[in-house]
Amino acid sequence: MKIAALQTVATPDVARNLATAERLLADAAAQGVRLAALPEYFCLMGRRDEDKLAIAEDDGAGPIQDFLAAQARRHGLWIIGGTLPIKAATPGRVRNACCAWNPLGERVARYDKIHLFAFDNGGERYDEARVLEAGDTPVAFEAEGWRIGLSVCYDLRFPELYRALMQPPCDLLVVPAAFTHTTGQAHWDLLLRARAVENQCFVLAPAQGGRHENGRRTWGHSQVIDPWGQVLACQDEGEAVVAAEAEPAVRDRVRQQLPALAHRRL
C-alpha cells in the first residue's frame, strides 16, 4: 500500500489551511497513494493557544470534519486528519483529536491525544494543558488488511502507548506532529526510528515544517520509516507529499528474521 505523510506550514487562517490540505490530498491521490495523513494542527496554528476554542467542533460534525470526509470520498482515500479541536466536557477545554476516514467518507476512528506537551528552556515555553483535555484510550483501526495505530506528537516519547497498540500487533503507526524546532532537531528522528524498530512496524510521521505566521518554528522532517528503521522518504521543511510503498513482505521478513515481538516477557 502506498502511504503518504503530508507536510504543511499551517497559518492562523482555517480557510487557507484547508485549501493547502485539499491541494496536498489531490497531489497524493494523483501519485497513487491509498492512505494519506495530515500533521497535527493542520487546520490551525493560532496566535494564542486559546484560538483552538473558537474553532472547536462537536464530535462527528463540523466544517473541518465535513471537509475531511468529503476529501476522502472525492479521492477514494483513507485519510488520517492530523488533529483538530473537538469540544471537551470540561468548559474552556478541547480534545486534540486525530480522526480517520475511509474512502467512502465514513469516520472509522477517533483518538484523543493522551500526553500533553510542556516545555520551558527559559526562552521557549509551552503548556498544552492550559487549553487541552487529555485523552485516556489507545486507538487502532483496520484499513485494507492493515492494523493502524494512532498517536500524536508528544506521545512519541512514551513507548508504553505503542506497546499497548501492539496487542494485537499493528502494521503501521501514525504520528501526526508539530514538534518544535528545538525538540525536533534533538529527538524527532531518533524517537521515530526507535518506535519503528522496537515494534517492527512501518511508521508514518506527517509534521508541521517551517516558520509559521505566529512566530513559531516547527521541525518538519515528515517521513516514512520501515520496520527495520530505514527512512524510505523524508522532507525537511515546506509543504510536501512524502510518499513511499509500505510492503507487507518487508514487515513479515523483519518479524521472521528477528522475532522480537514473540520474545517479549513484560
Rank of each mutant, 00 (worst) to 15 (best):
L77G: 02
A143Y: 03
T90G: 00
A21L: 03
A194L: 03
A19T: 08
C201Q: 01
G123C: 03
A109Q: 06
H263Y: 15
L24I: 12
E247Y: 01
Q235S: 02
I64G: 02
A69M: 05
D49C: 09
L191R: 00
V203A: 00
L116H: 05
V94H: 14
L156Q: 14
Q223K: 14
R211H: 12
R130I: 06
E142W: 10
R193L: 01
L172D: 09
V231K: 10
L84R: 11
P63Y: 06
L116N: 00
I55V: 13
D59T: 13
Y126F: 11
K87Q: 12
R74S: 13
A262E: 14
A164V: 14
D66H: 04
L190P: 00
E124T: 15
A140K: 08
A109D: 10
L165R: 06
D59A: 12
E237R: 04
I64S: 00
Y41M: 02
Q71D: 01
A194Q: 09
A249F: 03
A129P: 00
E133M: 07
P159I: 04
R255D: 11
V231R: 04
N96R: 15
Q230H: 04
A28D: 11
D112P: 07
R48I: 01
Y111A: 06
G105A: 09
D155K: 04
C99Y: 02
E198Q: 12
R195A: 03
G81T: 10
A143E: 07
N121W: 01
G32F: 06
